[in-house]
Amino acid sequence: MNRTRAGLLDGARRAFAEQGLRGSTMQSVAAAAGVAKGTLYNYFRTKDDVARALLATELDRLADLAAPLPPAEALVVLGDELATHPVLRRVAETEPDQLAALVVSGARWAELTDRLARALGVDADAAELAGRWLLGVVLQPGPTTGRRRQAAALARAMEPVD
């Protein structure tokens, strides 16, 4: 990813965390990125395009964090990242319908669980279970110690039965 695009997505992250998805505009994203609105339009046609690109970038980052770890550790890392992600916190609290549109609509959920299966090295059913737990963490993060206990229990439940 080139520096300009990365800077635009970083600005989008800040704007969305501050103002939510609905409250942000292409102008506020450009301002948060420190560029002219025209520069933003050179890379993205709409705010939805910006949100989708940010989601894809964040998914790549999370998959890279989780992939080298055993499932129990990966779930802890993913749970902590999702529970404290500023954009997800804002959207889950103020625009849950937008969260659903971004994450759980149609093919998007299948893509997410497929990526999760690859990152965790588990089958589709285990990835579905992990995905549902992680979505729950986004919606209601709970205390860190509880999330970590749940991640360990989930990892045990995801182990293949011989």
Rank of each mutant, 00 (worst) to 15 (best):
T57W: 10
A117T: 10
V122R: 09
A83R: 01
V50P: 14
G38P: 01
A92Q: 02
L116W: 11
V137G: 07
P143E: 13
V91N: 09
A152S: 06
L62K: 06
R89H: 11
V87H: 06
S105T: 15
T94W: 08
A83Y: 03
L54G: 13
T4H: 01
E58I: 03
S24G: 05
A30M: 06
L129T: 15
P86E: 14
R147A: 00
R90T: 14
L88N: 03
L88D: 09
R14Y: 01
Q27F: 13
R61N: 13
V50L: 10
L154F: 02
L112W: 05
R147E: 00
V122C: 14
A153I: 04
D162K: 04
G136Y: 10
N42Y: 12
V50E: 15
D49Y: 11
K37D: 07
T113C: 04
L135A: 15
K47C: 02
M158C: 07
R132E: 10
A72F: 03
T46P: 05
V35P: 14
A72T: 03
G131D: 07
A36E: 15
W109E: 01
V161G: 08
E95H: 09
V29Q: 10
A157C: 02
D48N: 08
T84I: 02
R3M: 08
D162I: 00
L139F: 00
F16V: 06
L116D: 15
L54K: 11
V137F: 02
A67T: 15
L135D: 14
T25V: 10
R3E: 08
R5H: 12
A110G: 03
G34S: 10
L55P: 05
D48F: 05
T4A: 12
G131M: 04
L21S: 00
W133L: 02
P96A: 00
R52W: 08
G38L: 08
L116A: 12
G23Y: 13
M158V: 04
G23K: 11
Q27H: 12
G38T: 09
V104R: 13
R5S: 12
D48W: 10
A56I: 01
D80G: 05
L139K: 02
A100G: 09
T46C: 07
A74I: 14
A151W: 00
A157H: 05
V103T: 14
V91Y: 03
P68V: 11
G106W: 11
G23P: 11
P71S: 05
A51D: 13
A92Y: 05
L59K: 04
E95F: 06
F16Q: 05
L99S: 04
A127K: 00
P96H: 01
A92T: 01
D123M: 07
L102E: 12
A126Q: 09
V35F: 10
P160Q: 00
A6L: 10
L116S: 13
E81D: 13
T113M: 05
A155Y: 06
T46Q: 06
V76M: 07
A12E: 14
R148A: 00
F16R: 08
A33L: 07
L69C: 09
L54Q: 15
T113G: 06
D123W: 05
A63Q: 10
R149Y: 05
A33Y: 08
